[in-house]
Amino acid sequence: MTLVAGILLFVAGLLSGAINAVAGGGTFLTFGAMTLFGVPPIAANATSSIVQFPGYITSALAYRKEIAREWKPILILSAISLVGSLGGALLLLSLDNPSFKKLVPWLLLAATALFAAGPKLRPKVEKEHPPSSPVGILTQLVTSVYGGFFGAGMGIMMLASLGLATGGDYHRLNAIKNFLSIVIAAVAIVVFTAGGAISWLHAIIMLPGAGIGGYYGVWLAKRVPQKWMRYAVIAVGVFLAGYYFFKA
């Protein structure tokens, strides 16, 4: 790896942490940067899970009081998410790089469309109820399979599925989502590590950048309109989807 490549990967991690803090969608940058520098798509996807993981933890810590109050629905949904993430991660490892590469542009398009529609998918304030709805549980299972397989856009999907599964206001759902993101990512990371799919050199380079970006992203969020950050993420998603369609 050249010095220039290392610097650009660090910057990609930095920007992904900042974008996640402001609008979400940082996976587009980490995945895209690694593949553009020659990392096989499966390894790039798996390594992105490592890079984004610290941000999930800090986000959950910010909601620790809400999470403590919601331990019952979190326990049920964690079990569902664990099974789904395990299935998604194993499904990814069952593919070879050429097969996964053909799926990448479609996955990126779907994730970009989901990200663009994110504000409209935020659940309305509803009465809280136990996570016993078959439709809600099924959508959370599907979301966790997707998160284990390809994590971009997972947060938006999960807010929508949690609205069905357990209801409540946005902050309640966001707190549960942040904890479940840790579960989904942790299971995927264990599977990817056991399967030898993670590029640790790239992860080590980007992790400090992602941590710094996440910290200062809060400062950025107070000064840059969120819609412009969202537009930037959508532009990156569309560009990468077009790139992989061309390369397929």
Results as ranks from 00 to 15, higher is better:
Met1Leu: 06
Leu3His: 01
Val4Ala: 14
Ala5Cys: 00
Ala5Glu: 15
Ile7Glu: 03
Ile7Trp: 05
Leu8Gly: 02
Leu9Tyr: 03
Val11Ala: 15
Ala12Glu: 12
Gly13Cys: 08
Gly17Ser: 11
Ala18Asp: 02
Ala18Gly: 09
Ile19Gly: 00
Ala21Ser: 15
Val22Phe: 06
Ala23Phe: 05
Gly25Thr: 10
Phe31Ile: 13
Val39Lys: 00
Asn45Lys: 08
Ser48Pro: 00
Ser48Thr: 14
Ser49Asn: 11
Val51Tyr: 00
Gly55Ser: 06
Ala60Lys: 09
Tyr63Gly: 04
Arg64Phe: 09
Arg64Thr: 03
Ala68Cys: 07
Ala68Trp: 14
Arg69Ile: 04
Arg69Asp: 15
Glu70Ile: 03
Lys72Ala: 14
Pro73Trp: 11
Leu75Gly: 13
Ile76Ser: 13
Leu77Asp: 05
Leu82Gly: 08
Val83Gln: 04
Gly84Ile: 11
Leu86Ile: 05
Leu86Lys: 00
Leu86Thr: 02
Ala89Val: 05
Leu90Asn: 12
Leu90Gln: 13
Leu93Asn: 12
Pro98Asp: 09
Pro98Val: 10
Ser99Leu: 11
Lys102Thr: 13
Val104Phe: 05
Pro105Thr: 07
Trp106His: 13
Leu108Cys: 10
Leu108Ile: 10
Ala111Thr: 07
Thr112Gln: 09
Leu114Ala: 13
Phe115Arg: 09
Ala116Lys: 00
Ala117Ser: 13
Gly118Asp: 11
Pro119Arg: 07
Leu121Thr: 10
Glu126Met: 09
Pro130Gln: 11
Pro130Gly: 13
Pro131Ile: 10
Ser133Ala: 12
Pro134Asn: 10
Val135Leu: 15
Val135Ile: 13
Ile137Cys: 08
Val142Phe: 14
Thr143Trp: 02
Phe149Pro: 05
Gly151Asp: 11
Gly155Glu: 12
Ile156Ser: 01
Ser161Gln: 05
Ala165Gly: 09
Thr166Gln: 15
Thr166Pro: 01
Gly167His: 11
His171Trp: 12
Arg172Val: 10
Leu173Val: 10
Leu173Met: 11
Ile176Met: 15
Leu180Met: 14
Ser181Cys: 06
Ser181Pro: 03
Ser181Phe: 00
Ile184Lys: 08
Val187Glu: 11
Val190Asn: 07
Val191Cys: 06
Thr193Gly: 02
Ala194Thr: 06
Ile198Trp: 04
Ser199Tyr: 05
Ser199Gln: 12
His202Ala: 13
His202Ser: 15
His202Cys: 03
Ala203Gly: 08
Gly209Tyr: 09
Gly214Met: 08
Tyr215Gly: 05
Tyr215Ala: 13
Trp219Pro: 01
Arg223Pro: 00
Arg230Lys: 13
Arg230His: 06
Gly237Ser: 07
Val238Gly: 01
Val238Ala: 12
Val238Glu: 04
Phe239Gln: 02
Leu240Asn: 05
Phe245Ala: 08
Phe246Asp: 00
Phe246Val: 03
